[in-house]
Amino acid sequence: MELAIGSLLGLAIGAFCRWQDIPSPAPPTPVGALLVVAMSAGFVLAGLFS
């Protein structure tokens, strides 16, 4: 449930930034984007084991 809420919130923030022509808070390079994905996945996995 938390993963779904987090994903929807991320999509909503991205869509809002695009709609308002605000620079995206995410890194603009593929390596930066992968870093965000890796950190999010690590957070979710750590939550499963704690």
Rank of each mutant, 00 (worst) to 15 (best):
M1S: 13
L3E: 13
L3V: 12
L3P: 04
L3S: 10
L3F: 12
A4T: 02
A4P: 00
A4F: 02
I5S: 10
I5A: 15
G6L: 14
L9S: 05
L9F: 06
L9Q: 05
G10I: 04
G10E: 03
L11N: 04
L11W: 06
L11R: 03
L11Y: 07
A12V: 14
A12I: 12
I13W: 00
I13E: 00
G14C: 07
A15W: 09
A15L: 11
A15I: 11
F16Q: 04
F16H: 03
F16P: 00
C17G: 03
R18G: 01
R18W: 09
R18D: 05
D21E: 15
D21V: 15
I22D: 12
P23R: 11
P23Y: 08
S24W: 06
S24A: 13
S24F: 08
S24I: 08
P25N: 10
A26I: 10
P27Q: 08
P27L: 15
P28D: 08
T29N: 06
T29L: 05
P30T: 03
A33K: 06
A33T: 05
A33D: 00
L34Q: 14
L34Y: 12
L34D: 11
L35C: 11
L35E: 08
L35A: 15
A38K: 00
A38Y: 01
M39Y: 06
M39P: 01
M39V: 15
M39T: 09
S40V: 10
S40L: 13
A41N: 00
A41F: 04
G42W: 05
G42H: 01
F43P: 09
F43R: 15
V44E: 11
V44P: 02
L45K: 07
A46M: 13
A46L: 15
F49W: 05
S50A: 04
S50N: 02
S50M: 04
